[in-house]
Design a protein around this nucleic acid. Structure first.
Lengths: 284, 284
DNA sequence: TCTTGGCTATCACTGGACGTTATAGTTGAG
DNA sequence: CTCAACTATAACGTCCAGTGATAGCCAAGA
């Protein structure tokens, strides 16, 4: 296997666009195309296919790109070591916005970034898993419904749900709430299809509660902001700080969600493992 | 970094001889020499130096060669996977003769060799550690005096010492012996400088026992054979089966030796980890 | 001491692999 | 149907990796 071609393929896999990837590599598009065709012949597998006007990687292509990224990461570590530099290759941490804002702060602060530059990628939960699987990220933090068997998952923290209410709201004096208590409420929710929205609407339906969508918002911060504006009540993870002017009441009777730290087996590196350790410690 | 040059360097590092390595690679010696010079300039480190008429790797060279071997191993695994072959790259197990003969048999039998071809390297204890460190072996089994901090070591099994005596020997009816009991004996021993010899002569000296060398022999099998010939008594690890015609009596008052399984951190692979697991299970 | 064998290191030269430019093919939007 | 954006293929040129020849180095043995 020709590793120049492999690394070119990684650049292609990152963008799925020959023209752009070729620019990135400072070669022309036909040159890149030839490399990838030869790589494909070499490994004896088709690496991508057309889908309409865009290109998508085949499973083999994804696997190969992941391998290439891994080699690059290790290679830059080794190179830095050999050259006596004290900063190694970067560690890439992927996670949702919520975890970055409220869960990962302490670990990120403690992490020795002068030794291992930290690169943070904010994305959705499912994308986080994919990013780790494809070696686009070294560490992922996400809520897992079903734990993928090909990745290492360690539970980081369980979080419950909190209902954010205006100060004078009829429910604001309660010690805790059940889904049924939100009957007739207008609620600020995450977009249709997101895990949090699914969980919430299911719990409310089970309890027989009638409710309406106040606003759809993406990201905890926005949800909280809209609740502050008084557009409706909000149901958020209990790690979110309750903002001034609102009251937080625990919501019982909904399943706790579990944040997990996800890594690729076989991609052990000192930098990565240190980050994982710090994340788990900070959650304890 | 140019990975063609890196792999050429691995071939060179395996033999420390440009001419032979070049033959192996099917290129000429000047071509190989040029590759390695350029690689050295690229990484900014001298990779080897002359020592008399032979060449030795620098620490940087060793590190780089280890990295190259690791990439090759992972690469062949990935390639086999992509091509849908069901046998992956080989796993390399390094160990002393004794462990191979008496300790590793069950694990080696159980190991799925059709899936991961097993390559066994027989060498001395210290060489075993070096082989693992340089990624010339994936797994090493050896007696460790001081555990190296840069490798993962897991204790596999403690073994005591047994004295092998002819059937009619004055000590052959005893339940156990102490080093002092071997006073005046003629003993079949391992060569001067070997760990076992050092341990034994130290124990005997501490006990004030006078003894003489019957024969020096390399390897447990030979030691036992000479004891069967009646050339002297032998002190062997208690995992050695007592041969017909001899009696085995436990030797107390000498330190147990500990066999360890040694691996390289960061070189995790399914094949390797399976082998390690089987070795540890078979020792339990 | 000198010779010899085995190897490394360096040079000038050459062929082919890889990159370039040019262009045809493909796809979907307007 | 045309256009824009991109992929795929072809012909051509260039630079670099490999070759053969040879000088340099070292140690063993005559």
């Amino acid at each position: 296997m020709n590793y120049d071609w492999l690394f070119s393929f990684v650049a292609f896999a990152d963008r799925l666009n020959f023209t752009r990837a070729a620019e990135e590599l400072h070669i022309t598009q036909p040159a890149l195309h030839a490399q990838i065709r030869k790589l494909s012949e070499d490994v004896g597998a088709t690496l991508y296919r057309r889908e309409g006007r865009s290109l998508v990687l085949s499973p083999e292509g994804r696997r190969l790109a992941a391998f290439g990224r891994e080699v690059q990461a290790r290679g830059s570590d080794v190179l830095a070591e050999l050259r006596g530099e004290d900063t190694r290759g970067p560690v890439i941490l992927a996670s949702g916005q919520g975890a970055f804002l409220y869960l990962l702060g302490p670990a990120i602060k403690r992490f020795p970034k002068e030794r291992w530059p930290l690169r943070a990628l904010s994305m959705s939960g499912p994308d986080t898993i994919e990013a780790v699987r494809d070696a686009r990220a070294d560490v992922g933090v996400a809520v897992l419904a079903n734990t993928p068997s090909d990745l290492d998952c360690r539970t980081m923290r369980r979080v419950g749900q909190t209902v954010l209410l205006p100060r004078g709201h009829r429910l604001s004096k309660r010690r805790s709430l059940k889904p049924g208590d939100l009957d007739t409420e207008s609620i600020v929710v995450a977009p249709e299809g997101s895990p949090h929205r699914v969980m919430l609407s299911q719990a409310l339906a089970t309890a027989g509660a009638k409710w309406s969508v106040a606003v759809e918002a993406t990201g905890w911060e926005l949800v909280i902001q809209f609740a502050r504006y008084g557009l409706g009540v909000a149901v958020v993870n209990d790690f979110c700080p309750v903002p001034r002017g609102l009251v937080g009441v625990r919501l019982e009777g909904v399943p706790d969600v579990e944040y997990h730290v996800v890594t690729r087996p076989g991609a052990e590196r000192e930098s990565r493992d240190t980050l994982v350790r710090m994340i788990l410690e900070s959650a304890a």
